[in-house]
């Protein structure tokens, strides 16, 4: 019966010798399977206990279990040492060139006009304006008539129009909207004050293109109507917008301007951030850059919407996103935006 005990001590000798020779994690795993695995040598001894008399079983079992614990502990110790050695090896011999690139991930970007438009809309949203949209192909009524620009009005020269081939009563009536202002009328048609809305969208002009002119453009129209809205609020809203988009230190100035659907009308200018007011090419030597047109909604338009024009006042503004994007990014030719040259677009 001593043979079993001898076997255990033989296993122990062989196991510890081989363990010391296991020089990496793979051979350690092989060693573990050979001795401690389901079909390992020590496991075989333990399995053989079932057929032994009770005394023998107790004695041999105790020895085998003690050896199992010892071998497991030795294995863990050896594993820790090997892992440590492996890390040391990586640190010492497998350094990476950190300047090499990672494998390519596809990288898409939004068009710079989309990016600028989102920033502009966010600025107005933060001030309580909602975003709405309207059709790009419009009736003359919304684009002109309802905005106090009847047929044969000289102010129509302010918007060179692309007309659709559709006549009614002998007149062209359908057009590619020349500005987002038709949405002032459309919004008022289905809402009651208080109104605070911005309407982004594409607009179109019959225009030859050059570095500062493009026939398709993106505008944002703004409209706020309530009892007690004044030009002071308009100035405050636009100044806040300009600072959010162009920087907190921006100075703003207003000048009188004319649009048939507002009275009084104005233009917002910011101090040129290129020359800081000294005068340069970007600002046309004036030190100021024109940003947008605005004004108090004409009382006739308020009344036409069915609102009490004595009580309700409001303001409207319209700004060109391309112009803002040009200024923010220092782009010197507006035609880049819709030429869609990837060497341009991928910069943004």
């Amino acid at each position: 019966m001593t043979s079993e005990i001898d076997t255990i001590s033989a296993i122990q000798q062989a196991a510890l010798r081989e363990l010391a020779a296991a020089s990496d994690l793979d051979s350690l795993d092989a060693w573990r399977i050979a001795y401690l695995g389901r079909r390992g040598r020590l496991t075989g001894v333990l399995r053989g206990l079932a057929g032994m008399p009770i005394e023998e079983r107790r004695r041999v079992g105790a020895g085998a279990n003690a050896l199992k614990e010892r071998l497991e502990a030795a294995c863990d110790e050896r594993r820790a040492a090997l892992e440590e050695a492996r890390v040391t090896q990586v640190i010492q011999e497998e350094r990476l060139d950190v300047t090499l690139p990672g494998p390519p991930l596809p990288h898409g970007r939004l068009h710079p006009i989309t990016q600028t438009l989102r920033d502009v809309l966010r600025a107005f949203r933060d001030m309580g304006f909602q975003v709405a949209e309207g059709p790009e192909i419009e009736w003359d009524y919304y684009n002109f008539e309802a905005l106090r620009i009847p047929a044969d009005h000289p102010a129509r020269d302010m918007w060179d129009t692309l007309w659709m081939d559709f006549e009614h009563d002998g007149r062209r009536q359908m057009l590619l909207r020349t500005h987002t202002s038709p949405n002032q009328i459309r919004v008022m048609e289905h809402s009651q004050p208080p109104i605070r809305v911005v309407v982004p969208g594409k607009c179109y002009r019959f225009e030859a293109t050059d570095p500062t002119h493009e026939w398709m453009m993106t505008q944002v129209e703004g409209l706020a109507i309530d009892a007690g809205i004044s030009m002071a609020d308009l100035k405050g809203t636009l100044a806040e917008f300009a600072r959010r988009i162009f920087g907190q230190e921006r100075r703003v100035a207003f000048r009188c301007d004319y649009f048939p659907f507002v009275e009084p009308g104005m233009e917002l200018r910011i101090d040129c951030f290129i020359c800081r007011g000294e005068g340069c090419r970007t600002c046309g030597r004036s030190g100021w850059i024109e940003i947008l047109g605005a004004g108090m909604v004409h009382p006739e338009i308020i009344a036409n919407a069915g609102y009490d024009a004595e009580k309700y006042t409001g303001f409207a503004f319209g700004l060109g996103i391309e112009r803002i994007a040009l200024l923010r990014h220092g782009v010197d030719d507006i035609r880049y935006f819709y030429a869609n040259d990837l060497r341009f677009l991928r910069q943004f």
Partner: peptide
Amino acid sequence: YDQLPTTQLRGEIPPEA
């Protein structure tokens, strides 16, 4: 225009559509 006061909008913010 620059001599006239500048204020921020007050009043009710319309319900979100």
